[in-house]
Nucleic acid binder design. Structure first.
Length: 894
DNA sequence: GAGATCACG
DNA sequence: ACGTACGTGATCTCT
């Protein structure tokens, strides 16, 4: 039996577009991710299926005759984003060059073409494999036609073969009856109305039972029949009223098999690609790897020379062992706009590449043990008068500061640039960026980072080659990423915030935060005593010993042995988290003990023991600030995390007394008051909320008074608490359910609070709707400073994923703008401290809070300076307010 | 390595 | 009818 594979072109290209990194582009900025993804999927399918024939269908536009039948049909489908649209003609060129037939027809959708093709195949005695990401096509499944469902998750493509058996297994009825199912439940994405009031559950049950709507309506009761058949009376009523809708929906949901196309399966037999044309296209698309994979060769003649300009580039390199030569090179570099620098974290080895002309580059390597006066060389290279690009400027600055060198002159950071362009990608190794942006596999950094890679016993050839190629890659990325930042309007954010922040962060890390080791130790001893006591009481109450840290064992004791009612389940068993235990409070004395034990062990292991491990001899804890991690633009803090030191409970807050200033100095703590809520007011342009803030009173009380319609002095603590929960929830894209959980009221009450809230803050409601709509159209959201977050989840067909996308779209601009603002404040505070010759230095940032350590004599000046700079970052309809205080310990200053 | 829990804004 | 708040990092258990 011969087999034809037909691809639903639009569906597959969409999967590819949203499944492959948004940042795959050519050097010129033409996006190529959808094409790349499409070809990968195609290759995988060909290997899997080995079909005799192959073709692709594309949509043209919504069918006009259906518009006449039902006006709303397809009206809700949005056009594709520009980044995808620009790839479509190129993709069609590529498929053309691969000699793969394409079918598209004005007024006909891919579905109908797929239906027509599989029908004609079957008539000709062929088998068909329909490949699509769209479940609509499942009705085509027959003994002759398999539908291969493609899904792309996190760059990985998975497929599922739907045969009649597999379909029956999953749905409980035959594939053709999916039409009947849709006739009842409708399909909002295709504007098929279905029967009003009948959802998926009801429809599935009915179709499983009756098979089709014809059979269902044939079984509908006459008035004299007993109630309860074929469904509950309410449903019967809806079915009866909706019969017209059901019949019309049935027609709308039916895929046609009579599209007027000339099609014969044998016209689509696999053919060799047009080598020359495909080579040129892949070259233009910068798909070097695919050229290899398809064994394409350059066409003969002039094209070849033009196609490989890189062959004319000369790269030379040298190992510098002589001071005079080093000086000579430094002098050359001082005249350049930018040189690319790659330094090992140890600073033992440095590679600098410099373009001498358009076609000639030169790299110089420096080894600490081969160049005399190496430290002076580093000092000169990293001075402000040599303009440099590097990958990970913050870490490099930190390493230099630790060597006593004050660095400057960084004009580009490829890591930070790549992060701004794709803040959800997670990591930005040079090797990975080489693949993302140039589709080329570079050597691994591990080759030169390995212990002793350049040691006396090692063969330096491989690590040196890797080092040189990465250094050159920094140069290429610098241009590619700069063009992209410019194009997306992020250059200012990059140059004025992210890049200067690198050295500020490095200084903060180097400064560190002094900790009172003695106090920490005795706090730990106290905790140990209380933990032992709590543990003994728990064993006593449980009647046996067990590992309290194991949720599994704890769940067994609580719910099986002691018979307490399980409140919630997790994937792996009973849930025993604080929320659950809180609900069980009073039901058994062991609960209180466990909560207590949890708090104590958390403090001991994460904080006392955790922090003790990272206190160096100088007594100062040096955290690492991560500036390329969060999706929103915030910083994070690791090894240790100083951004989650306890404060909310009395015992936990004890820890903040151990973060101290040295003798003669104090800590100045400044935090933004309600910055996210203020930003929400500004970005939404909500008059009521703006006025609320500008009145200077407490925002939660104001909100409560407006929402509950009482004067501010009549607001009860409960009213304020509810208003506060709504205020916070709004920023996260809350639902009434979660709000009700949070403040312990019914869902209905929570909904009422939210309705009232939106009545009074109508601008906030309008803003929330607008921001989500905009995000759906653009594929991203942005902050006031232009930082972007891509939100591909909004396109998901999965309700939960899509809802998550909506909440992200609401939250990211607010959280991200706050992050932009405090970053700018950090730069200005550092610059002012320096300009005014003060000794004070930043030691910590905790999202909306800055901590400066300074001499007692500077305390007042620094308080004022920090407050001024933090408040002056942005002039907005609601003024930014920062509260400051000074103290000997963090607890005292906060 | 994944999942559960809990510390922070 | 769904499933239920955004962003992080560290520690512990268990497979």
């Amino acid at each position: 039996m011969k087999k034809l594979m037909v691809l639903d072109g639009n569906s597959i290209v969409n999967r590819a577009f949203y499944g492959v990194s948004q940042n795959l582009t050519t050097r010129a900025g033409q996006p190529t991710n959808a094409i790349f993804g499409f070809l990968n999927i195609l290759n995988k399918l060909l290997e899997e299926e080995k079909p005799d024939a192959l073709c692709v269908t594309f949509d043209r536009k919504a069918p006009t005759f259906r518009h006449l039948a039902y006006e709303g049909y397809k009206a809700t489908r949005k056009g594709m984003p520009d980044e995808l649209a620009s790839q479509m003609p190129i993709l069609k060129d590529v498929l053309g060059a691969m000699n793969i037939p394409m079918y598209e027809l004005d007024g006909w959708e891919a579905d109908d073409l797929l239906g027509t093709i599989s029908a004609k195949d079957a008539a000709a005695g062929w088998d068909t494999v329909v490949v699509t990401g769209d479940k609509d096509s499942l009705q085509l499944v027959t003994d002759r036609t398999t539908v291969k469902l493609v899904s792309t998750r996190m760059g990985r493509t998975t497929t599922r073969d739907m045969t009649p058996e597999a379909f029956q297994e999953e749905y409980g009825f035959a594939p053709i009856h999916i039409i009947d199912l849709k006739a009842l439940m409708g399909d909002s994405s295709d504007n098929i109305p279905g029967v009003k009031g009948v959802g998926e559950k009801t429809a599935m049950a009915l179709i499983r039972r009756y098979g089709s709507i014809d059979a269902l309506y044939a079984a509908m009761p006459t008035p004299e029949m007993a109630p309860g058949e074929p469904a509950k009376p309410g449903v019967v009523k809806k079915l009866a009223e909706g019969e017209g809708d059901a019949r019309m929906s049935y027609d709308l949901a039916t895929i046609r098999t009579d599209a007027p196309i000339d099609f014969a399966p044998e016209d689509n037999l696999r053919r060799e690609a047009d080598n020359g044309r495909l080579y040129q296209l892949f070259l233009d698309l910068e798909f070097a790897k695919l050229i290899d994979k398809y064994h394409l060769t350059a066409p003969q003649g002039e094209v070849q020379a033009e196609a490989e300009p890189s062959s004319e580039v000369t790269c030379s390199s040298e190992v510098v062992t002589d001071r005079t030569r080093a000086e000579e090179l430094l002098e050359l570099w001082r005249k350049k706009d930018c040189v690319d620098v790659l330094a090992l974290p140890s600073l033992d080895v440095v590679c600098v590449e410099c373009w001498l002309s358009e076609s000639e580059s030169h790299a110089a390597l420096f080894f600490s043990d081969k160049l005399e006066g190496y430290n002076d060389f580093l000092k000169a290279l990293f001075a402000p008068d040599v303009k440099k690009a590097a990958h990970g400027v913050k870490s490099l600055c930190r390493a230099l500061l630790d060597e006593g060198i004050t660095p400057g002159g960084f004009v580009f950071d490829t890591e930070v640039a790549a992060y701004l362009l794709a803040p959800t990608d997670g990591s930005y190794d040079l090797e990975k960026l080489g693949m993302t942006y140039y589709n080329h596999q570079f050597a691994k950094a591990a080759d030169y980072l390995a212990e002793g890679a350049f040691g006396p016993l090692a063969d330096p050839v491989a690590p040196t080659a890797a080092l040189l190629s990465h250094c050159a890659l920094i140069g290429s990325l610098r241009e590619t990423l700069a063009a992209r930042l410019e194009e997306l309007g992020m250059m200012k954010l990059y140059q004025e915030i992210e890049l200067p922040l690198c050295s500020v962060l490095a200084e903060m890390e180097t400064a560190g935060f002094l900790i009172d080791r003695g106090a920490l130790v005795s706090f730990g001893e106290m905790l140990s005593g209380r933990i032992d006591a709590a543990q003994a009481r728990i064993y006593e109450l449980a009647g046996e010993t067990f590992n309290i840290n194991s949720t599994q064992q704890l769940g067994h004791i609580l719910f099986d042995k002691l018979g307490l009612p399980p409140v919630k389940k997790t994937k792996t068993g009973y849930s025993t988290n604080a929320e659950v235990l809180d609900k069980l409070r009073g039901k058994h004395p062991i609960i209180e003990e466990i909560l207590d034990y949890r708090q104590l062990t958390k403090l001991k292991s994460t904080y006392v023991d955790g922090l003790s491990k990272v206190i160096p001899p100088d007594g100062r804890i040096h955290t690492s600030f991560q500036n390329t991690v969060t999706a929103t633009g915030r910083l994070s803090s690791t090894e240790p995390n100083l951004q989650n030191i306890p404060v909310r409970t009395e015992l936990g807050a004890e820890l903040r007394k151990m973060f101290v200033a040295p003798a003669g100095k104090v800590l100045v703590d400044a935090d933004y008051s309600q910055i996210e809520l203020r930003l929400l007011a500004c970005m939404a342009g909500d008059r009521a909320m703006i006025d609320g803030f500008n009145s200077g009173a407490d925002i939660h009380t104001i909100t409560a008074s407006q929402v509950f319609g009482v004067s501010p002095d009549e607001v009860t603590p409960l009213m304020r608490r509810s208003a506060k929960a709504v205020n916070f929830g709004i920023v996260y894209g809350i639902s009434p359910f979660s709000l009700s959980q949070d403040i312990g009221v019914t869902v209905a009450q929570a909904k009422e609070y939210m309705d009232k809230y939106f009545q009074h803050y109508s601008g906030v409601r309008a803003y929330m709707d607008a921001v989500v709509e905009q995000a759906k159209a653009d594929g991203y959201v942005s902050t006031l400073f232009g930082r972007r977050r891509w939100v591909p989840e909004l396109k998901s067909s999965n309700f939960n994923t899509r809802s998550f996308g909506e909440r992200v779209a609401l939250n990211a601009p607010i959280q991200g703008t706050a992050a932009d603002i405090i970053k700018l404040a950090m730069i200005r505070v550092r610059d002012r401290l320096r300009a005014e010759g003060l000794e004070g230095k930043l030691v910590l940032q905790v999202h909306d809070e800055l901590i400066v350590e300074c001499p007692e004599s500077e305390a007042e000046t620094v308080c004022q300076l920090v407050e001024e700079e933090m408040e002056a970052v942005a002039a907005l309809p609601v003024t930014l307010v920062a509260d400051t205080a000074a103290g000997r310990t963090w607890a005292e200053a906060h």
